[in-house]
Amino acid sequence: MTHLDHRYDQLIDDLKSEYRPQREWAEGRGFFLIVGHFLVGLAAGAWLFGLGFEDSFALLSGWLLAGLGGLAHLVNIARPERALRMMTRFRTSWVSRGFWGLVFFMIGATVYLVTLLAPAAIGGTDTIIAQAAMALSIAGAVILIGYMGFVYTASKGIPFWDSNLHPVLYMSYAARGGAAMVLLGLAFGAGTGIDAEILLELWLTATALAAILWILEIQGAYASRDDAAIRSVRDILSGRLAFAFYAGMLLIGLLLPAVLIAGIVAPLSSAVMGTVALASVAGDFFMKYASIKAGRYLPLRIP
């Protein structure tokens, strides 16, 4: 059986099932959409935290991650040669706005990094060019964070995503990822002068917000009494995505960092902060994987 035969059989099975799982943004080239959203969310958070804490490591990693995230988005689309067309519908389409956000971010961040790392080239970070580039990069980062949440909310065919909380959830995850990237820099000796305790408090606040929003999302899915949304939640809590949820999101992304920060295993050190940061980032990936893959299409029935 060829892979095309297999995909055809799978599609027919999906069409026969009442709660058809979305595979468009989760499997095959669609997996790169998950990777792309994970990377640009992390990048935007790292950039904003890097600017706030004046941390070159977070700024550089944010720029690099955004570039990789952009490439992942390109792999996700089937006709990358037409990608520039995606700039045309920014008035209505969040995908188009996300494209603009990435363009703003990459231009602004690149110029700002040049002024930061090679001030002899076009002047230091106090110049008008640097300030304008920073403003552009911030605008791009904010658009990127917003785009990810709103693009799901606009998906009326997937009831689990069709929630007003989704954008806020993605914002909280970007903040969590940003704090984690600065922590990671601290672990590698970057960011001297940054108060690790303040950073950890910020990470904990963003994590607590993300956890509350997750609980509200799940409660909202049940409260909506939408069968497809409830089925998605069941996929996450007790179905095909339970491993990603319990092992990835909860154990690695939440419990492990919490235990390490509490100092139960070892006193706070560079190694511990690095582990907290990496665990947090890994947990964020599993969160995006689980929530995107859990999407199921709205079933069609006679009312």
Partner: peptide, 29 residues
């Protein structure tokens, strides 16, 4: 000629009436 194959419209359609033509596949293999 304008479609980039991002599949966003498939997820936005509440009626699941959009299909992605990924690869050429004849009926008789």
């Amino acid at each position: 000629d304008k479609c980039v194959g991002c599949r966003t419209c498939m997820l936005a359609c509440p009626y699941s009436q959009r299909f992605f033509n990924d690869e050429t596949r004849p009926y008789f293999g």
